[in-house]
Structures are given as C-alpha cells and as structure tokens.
Computed example of a mutant assay.
Amino acid sequence: MTTRSAGRLKPRITILAADHERLSTLARAATNTHPDVSAILTEELDRARVVADAKRSHPFVRMGHEVEYRDDTAGAVRKVTLVYPEDADIGQGKISVLTPIGAALIGVGVGESISWETRNGELKRLTVLQVGDAEVA
C-alpha cells in the first residue's frame, strides 16, 4: 500500500513503538531548529504502522540498524546506519534521522522505494535493498 504526499507516492512504513515515541519527541523538539526535517519526520511518523515487535514483520529500516540502499537517481549503492542526531558521524556512515534522507529512510521496507527532497530542493528516489542487524556499541 502506498500513499500520495506532495504529488509523490510513498510506501507504507513500519516503525517500532519504542522508536515511534522517541522519534515523535525528537521531531517536536526540532520544530524550531530544523523545521523542514521536523515536518518530514512528523509526516512519516503520522502515516506509519506502529508495531511492538519486529520479529514477525517484513524487514524494514529501524534506528541503529545498517541499511543498504540504491540511489535510483544516480544508480549508486550505499550502506549507512540510521542513528539519532547525537550519534551521527557521516565519516563512519552513521546518518541522522534528522536529515532529509534519514527521515525518508525510517520505516521503509526491503524492496520498497521512496522519493525524498534534498536540502537544496533536488528530488531523489531510493530503494531499500537490505536491512542489517543493529549496530553493536
């Protein structure tokens, strides 16, 4: 199932209940400092299917997990770990959920695609290829 947002189709997303609560708080707190990404994250959270346990679900992008995706615009494949802002380190491939691509990735299932807008207004599309295990601290 997909929904239409700002003229773009978006896949149904899934988010763990614990992540949903923390991300909702983060989105509200970022309203003044990062209003654009806060609005995107809030929109994603509002349309998410919230689950208590991911064990029986189709694999989807979760906080702290490595994700391999294809930039459908450029054709490049990347692996990153989706993290909270305080853990972000682009040099280590850790991207914040409070970035446009991080907010787009959250909850997307393996094999599904989503369009997202860069900070300079460029429209891109990505496809999630694989979701790995949680990062070990």
Rank of each mutant, 00 (worst) to 15 (best):
T2Q: 08
T2M: 08
T3I: 15
G7C: 10
L9H: 09
P11E: 04
P11I: 02
I13L: 00
I13N: 00
I13P: 00
T14W: 03
I15L: 08
H20D: 06
R22T: 13
R22D: 07
A30G: 10
A30R: 11
N32A: 15
S38D: 07
L41F: 06
E44I: 07
L45S: 04
D46C: 06
R47I: 02
V50W: 03
V50M: 03
A54V: 08
A54D: 14
K55Y: 13
H58W: 10
H58A: 11
P59S: 11
V61E: 01
R62K: 14
M63H: 04
M63G: 05
G64N: 12
H65F: 04
H65I: 02
E68A: 06
E68S: 09
V77G: 05
V80S: 04
T81L: 01
T81H: 01
L82S: 07
L82I: 13
L82E: 05
V83P: 08
P85G: 13
E86K: 14
G91F: 07
I95Y: 04
V97G: 05
T99E: 08
I101K: 12
G102W: 03
A103P: 02
A104P: 03
L105M: 13
V108W: 00
V108I: 13
V108Q: 00
V108D: 00
V110H: 01
V110N: 02
S113C: 11
I114W: 01
I114E: 04
S115Y: 12
S115P: 06
S115R: 07
W116Q: 03
T118P: 08
R119K: 12
N120D: 15
G121T: 10
G121W: 06
E122A: 14
L123A: 12
L123C: 11
L129E: 04
D133V: 10
A134P: 10
V136P: 01
V136Y: 09
V136E: 08
A137L: 12
